[in-house]
Design a protein around this nucleic acid. Structure first.
Lengths: 216, 216, 216, 216
DNA sequence: TATGAATGAGAGTTCATTCAT
DNA sequence: AATGAATGAACTCTCATTCAT
């Protein structure tokens, strides 16, 4: 266990291309077969290179997944960032955060599942998953703290407990969501989770749904 | 994939003893090494029997885990049942549910993690995990519906969304909790999650913590 | 390899019954699954006794087959014996021999096939098969010698070559026959093989078929 | 059961060499130990490669035997072909056919025995053996039909019966022959079987042996 | 760089046989 | 005599990784 690490960067343009096509192909294969059921040959075949070539760029199967993860994590963060200039009331900001989080999660759900499979076996991915989650937990904590400081949220809630709980609520919903794909209306989910989120920390929430926004 | 199934019940007392010691030992081994890293030999060694004896009772590694799961699921349900006669206000009942859930989860967290590893690879365990979770989701949904019917909870919340979300909040916290073992005070966690749970669905919650109960 | 040998005769009546039912059941199982695909458990199950009981009567799987063979060989010899008092012309006698041989072979074809499978692996059965065959080869040789002495058959034929060849002709036909079951008319086969047999050694044969006998 | 199939052709010269040496070695090993007693490790050891290398070229033990069979079947057919331009009388042609068949069979007897062992267990080889035999049966049938059409052979013989019987006669002799190796004079065997063959179908045969031909 | 051949540790499984009860 | 639990040798096959070309 406990491997990973990214690996020898290629020098030539040709090398860069080969490596890139490996990462691209690997993503498809991992999504289709999961981590442990994917063999190095699968990866090589999908990229149209020979068996041994994979080892030119990656020291181990884990390293290939790590490279794929890099891309995924980047995409998730990009998708999730709420524009700083969104000057809006707290609930609207929470809604926007949830909306983006759910959307990003849905787009990468299968890949995140794969990483979690790898995490059951490999320290590196365990930390990666924890780290990714930690970012959102930190965001939730600091949001809560700000609201508490502003006298908007219940000051007796411990952010170290409430933070993970709130993230867990949204994440866990998102995780199952893509399984029951199509069952729920996206905006209704956002609205419901947002109101629960807000109320849970003591924010006052009007009864009526937020009218907002385009569909994902 | 997709195996499991429980397996041939032994006939004699001696056989029953052997099978039992295998299941006992397997639980320790699985908790220590996870599912995929455990070999049949590990299980045999831990129970002090020979390699082939395991196959007398279990047709495959999955079947051993399935047998362990049976025990675990039973224990979880037993630990979680809230006495019907607990005549108390809604929040106290929710608190009691969460308290038991968190305690049961903490006691079996490692094993549940192992099952989840197996679930990434085997349909049988995927369904087992989903089924277990489903029981709690259903409970949450019906609790919510009752409160809505009684005019205590926000009637505009869709139980199909709120239910999974609430279970996810508690479960996801429990799941990480055992990792950060000792960090949090159990009653404070129960209290915090309970207030969030209750408020999220619109129940009125007094500011002060529940004083209740013995520590787990 | 090279095992076999029959095995400890049971003393009590009950033991004799158990042993007998094992042999009976074994015959069915061997015919259904062949030798190597049959396990001791199959035999025990079919006889309705426990796994270990088989070893009370037979030291090894081969010994069970050997016991079945005893019965089969006895039946074959019984079925094949041409009544001494059949005073008839040579060709009619040959016909009768072929008729009985083909009939006996057809009745036991599957079992003989099984023994031959065992013979590829076990010296004992190789000798059994050779011995059985040898009996017929000797008969053919002595028949030929008698005809040669009587001036009826070609005296230049070496019985050591012609004997096995003639037996081979009939046996090899019988062996495939039961596969193409129903394709040929039994009497026509007897007649054809008999004429070839007789002519091959130089006996004069009338053109018309033998009118003989009831159908099998 | 029912496997076989030939397998991945190697690409490089080195691969071709390795595969070839595996097939060569396998032939020796199979002849020495039979099919079921040969393990993949035996094959690897005999070829001087590692365990897993065998699996680079053959997906299973059956596939190795299938590859050996390819070679053997080819050799048998090559050895057996009677030159079309052999303008000779019927009996001489039959003699030449038998001579070549016996010689080819003798050269490959042990291997054919091995294949027959495999055939008792594996559909693929059963069909291979049947197919090989079928070729000779068809040849015998058409020979007989031609002689019948030319008025040389007994027209009342059914070729569907006589054909397999004649092939069986020669094959069965050949099969045992290699066991009693050296006992018989090859030309005498050819002569005897040929006269029996010819007479059996009603061809007129002079009493004296064919003087013919070099020894095998 | 790229190829593909070669390696070998290790896993799961089967089953004839032995043995305690 | 009968049972069925226990054994363990043996076998097939997989695949991450190394290496010669």
């Amino acid at each position: 266990m406990a491997s990973g690490g990214v690996a020898a960067a290629p020098i030539t343009a040709r090398g860069r291309r080969t490596r890139e096509s490996l990462v691209q192909a690997a993503r498809d294969v991992f999504e289709a077969k999961g981590f442990s059921d994917t063999t190095m040959s699968d990866l090589a075949d999908a990229a149209g290179v020979s068996h041994g070539t994979v080892y030119t760029y990656f020291p181990a199967k884990e390293a290939v997944l790590a490279a794929v993860c890099n891309a995924v994590v980047g995409e998730v963060f990009a998708a999730v960032r709420v524009p700083e200039d969104l000057r809006a009331d707290p609930v609207t900001r929470i809604a926007e955060g949830n909306r983006r989080y759910l959307r990003a999660y849905a787009a990468h759900a299968r890949m995140l599942e794969v990483v979690e499979q790898a995490a059951t076996t490999d320290e590196y991915f365990r930390e990666l998953v924890d780290g990714l989650r930690g970012v959102f937990v930190e965001k939730a904590k600091s949001t809560l703290r700000r609201f508490q400081a502003d006298g908007l949220a219940d000051a007796t809630l411990d952010p170290d407990i409430a933070g993970p709980a709130l993230v867990g609520m949204v994440e866990s919903f998102a995780r199952r969501w893509y399984v029951h794909d199509g069952t729920f209306d996206a905006e209704q989910v956002v609205d419901t989770l947002t109101r629960m989120w807000a109320r849970a920390i003591g924010l006052p929430v009007e009864h009526q749904q937020s009218e907002t926004r385009e569909q994902p």
